[in-house]
Design a protein around this nucleic acid. Structure first.
Length: 194
DNA sequence: GCGTCGATGGCA
DNA sequence: GCCATCGACGCG
C-alpha cells in the first residue's frame, strides 16, 4: 500500500490537516492491521497559537512537537484518554495536527467518532510518542477515492485560548456521520422543520 | 435532544 | 489547579 512520506508532513499544519481528511490511518498491532478513514482533524499552527501545547514552550511533554516532522505526538489528557497528533512543518517549528475522528475500514466495527475513542480503538498510546510515521507500527496512506467535501469549524475544548479559539482550524468531512460530538453549528441551506 | 457532572493522572 | 474527553444521568 502507498504510504505518505516526509515531504507530505514537511508543510504547514493547516495544509496537512486538510489533506489528512479522507486519508487512511494504518495501525499494525500484534500482527493485525487496523485501518480507518480519517474524517476530522485539527491544526495547531505554532508556538504563537495559544491553543497549542507548544505555546507553553519546549517541555518534556512537548519535545516531540519541536522535533522533525512526520512523527507521532501522543499525550494523555484527563487522566484517561490518549490523543494522536502528527508533527508537521520543519524541525524547530512546533506545528501539529490532531486526529479527531475516523471511519473503520475492512468490515471492522468500531466507534472512532472522537480523538479519545479513535486512539483507544486503534491501540494508540504514549508508547507510540515520537514514532516515525513512515515506519511499520503507524502510518498514513493517501486518499484514494473521491475528495471529501470539506467543512471547517472552531477547534474543540480550547476556550482558554483567547482569540485563537475563534480560528477555523478544525476540518471535517461534511458527509461523514463519524464526525465527533461537538458538531459545527451549520444549518443546511433551504431546509427547516415546520 | 441538550446541559451538567465526575472520572482520573500527568504536568506546570 | 488545570486540561486538545467521554459517558452517564436527569430532564419533561
Amino acid at each position: 500500500m502507498v504510504k505518505l512520506y516526509h515531504a507530505f508532513y514537511t508543510r504547514p499544519a493547516i495544509d496537512v490537516a486538510r489533506d489528512l481528511v479522507g486519508a487512511i490511518l494504518v495501525r499494525r498491532f500484534r500482527g493485525r492491521t487496523l485501518r480507518a478513514r480519517i474524517v476530522e482533524t485539527e491544526a495547531y499552527v505554532g508556538p504563537h497559537d495559544l491553543a497549542s501545547h507548544a505555546s507553553k514552550g519546549r517541555t518534556a511533554r512537548t519535545d516531540v512537537m519541536f522535533g522533525p516532522p512526520g512523527r507521532a505526538y501522543v499525550y494523555l489528557i484527563y487522566g484517561m484518554y490518549e490523543m494522536l497528533n502528527v508533527v508537521t512543518s520543519v524541525e524547530g517549528d512546533p506545528q501539529a495536527v490532531l486526529i479527531r475522528a475516523g471511519e473503520p475500514l475492512d468490515g471492522w466495527d468500531a466507534d472512532l467518532s472522537g480523538p479519545g475513542k479513535l486512539a483507544r480503538a486503534m491501540k494508540i498510546s504514549r508508547a507510540l510518542n515520537g514514532a516515525d510515521l513512515t515506519g511499520d507500527a503507524l502510518s498514513f496512506a493517501p486518499n484514494s477515492g473521491a475528495r471529501p467535501r470539506l467543512v471547517a469549524g472552531t477547534r474543540v475544548g480550547v476556550d482558554y485560548a483567547g482569540d485563537w479559539k475563534h480560528e477555523l482550524l478544525r476540518f471535517m468531512d461534511a458527509d461523514s456521520r463519524a464526525v465527533s460530538k461537538p458538531r459545527p453549528k451549520v444549518e443546511p441551506a433551504g431546509r427547516r422543520s415546520p
